[in-house]
Write a protein that binds this DNA or RNA. Structure first.
Lengths: 284, 284
DNA sequence: AGGTTTATGAAACTCTTGTTTCAGTAATTA
DNA sequence: TAATTACTGAAACAAGAGTTTCATAAACCT
């Protein structure tokens, strides 16, 4: 679909005067030229006077040239619905190139978030907002991501804890949790057995649990009463990419911020200021 | 590769004043905004005065703002639109919706990887492959990401260590490093002072260093002799998103795998088998 | 702390851009 | 061909953009 300006011109092209048409044609030929080019210049390119340019835009129904430019800018920013980016097919042996990487990542992100129901996200945010304490868990490589999510959440609300990777001390760590708490688990395939243990515990304690996982584990997690945030993590070769998992963590934190409103803002500024002071201290 | 303006800013970023940096950062984050936006507006977005804007452009070596715009336009004409997916504009107060989140993430990924020169990536992979040991560092929220990258790299080659977040024990940790080692640092703005210390150390020890960072710190890192992997991390609101950072880590690991070939494969399978056995043990 | 340097935005100023007016030209009609 | 109408660009005008100046504030030295 063309821009609104282009459509408007096409409709009325015949009604325009000779020199208006000259300019109009130029605009049709190079629609992207409107951004960053002044009306005077456009007129110059088309070989007509500034006055004609002013008249043309008015005749097309705009109040101003500024009006035209604003609309063009807005339209560029709104660049229609995201188009499906297919997952590239790559022979197993070929080296990963940067463009392929980009395409894989983009495809996973798009699938993940076009599929995500915003009511599920909001429910998750609601649970995190209402919880007395929040526990974040991730095993193996997901531990780093869990730590990341923990920091993100801790900036926004108090009482966010990272569950140790050492399963043997879970009893101590989880002993004090109750139905008022929330548990966020990051776990993609291969699904660690421990996670099931943890989810079972959560279910019996009536701990609200949110699981960020990949499509193969959605069912399992849901069956244990967890709210599931599903992330696409596949690549054309055998590895996984956790980019969409991190992105989901980021979105979850954003959703919590929205949910908490002012309260989150206050805490965030407090922390930012403290951090700044620490940096300053070290400078001296 | 970035625009000439972006390069110029990155080179001189630290020499700029506080509010010049605010504006410069905005320009780095949204390079496409220069077209079709007046200097006054840009200054407004960045929260600085028109005067500062004028000064910035002069300080960067342009004679005029007009000069800047002309060059930007010329560059776009030479290389096509800066990016297909623009960063959406969002009012500061609006809640983050899922589609907006998706668009932000996609825009950052695309910018990051369309700009990434594959020879730089390969050089980084080469250094990681050739190094005797690899040290991975990340402070604050980046520590989680560093841990993630560490795991990723450790699956593929031996001798990959995570540097503790506790700066006071760095002397011990880094004591045994030498010119044969490689250091990977993950640090986005606000740039922690400690990172500079670490980079200085690396430079004097002739430690090869790779820095994963955001556009505002590229110059600083390069000047300390590091190989820089530049990641776009901005959002239309005030926070940052580290999704592209994680993705970069992922790509770096992939590149290393490609570089190591068979050797990586063997180690990876070994580790996968071990992990499986552990899981099995616990089932019983 | 006091003095010096540096950085900053408000406001004055200059220059460019876009609009409007108007007189001259071209096209149209009788 | 003369009268009428429509179109056009030059120039006057108004609005706004970008630059420079300057007083004030912040940072930095002793």
């Amino acid at each position: 679909m063309g821009t609104r300006l282009a459509l408007r011109i096409q409709e009325r092209f015949e009604d325009l005067t000779r020199s208006e048409q000259k300019l109009a044609q130029f605009l049709l030929d190079r629609p992207d030229e409107i951004l960053g080019t002044s009306a005077t210049e456009l007129a110059g390119f088309a070989g007509v006077s500034k006055a004609t340019a002013a008249r043309l835009f008015r005749n097309l129904g705009y109040s101003d040239f500024n009006d035209v430019r604003l609309q063009a800018r807005e339209e560029r920013n709104r660049t229609g619905p995201v188009q499906q980016i297919p997952m590239p097919q790559v022979s197993a042996t070929a080296a990963t190139t940067v463009p392929v990487h980009l395409q894989v990542e983009t495809a996973n992100l798009i699938r993940t978030f076009e599929e995500l129901r915003s009511d599920v996200l909001n429910q998750a945010a609601e649970q995190l907002a209402a919880a007395g304490r929040v526990w974040v868990a991730g095993l193996g490589i997901e531990n780093g991501l869990a730590q990341y999510l923990r920091t993100l959440l801790a900036r926004v609300r108090p009482g966010v804890h990272l569950i140790s990777e050492n399963a043997s001390i879970w009893p101590e760590e989880l002993a004090s949790t109750g139905p008022n708490d929330a548990l966020v688990i990051i776990a993609v395939r291969p699904w660690p057995q421990h996670i099931s243990t943890m989810l079972n515990f959560a279910k019996t304690t009536r701990l609200k649990s949110i699981v960020i996982t990949d499509p193969t584990n959605v069912g399992k997690a849901q069956r244990k009463g967890a709210l599931v945030l599903n992330c696409h993590v596949s690549t054309p070769w055998s590895e996984l990419t956790q980019t969409s998992v991190l992105s989901m963590a980021q979105l979850l934190a954003s959703a919590l911020i929205n949910r908490l409103g002012q309260k989150a803002e206050i805490r965030r500024n407090l922390i930012a200021n403290l951090a700044e002071e620490f940096e300053d201290d070290r400078d001296r």
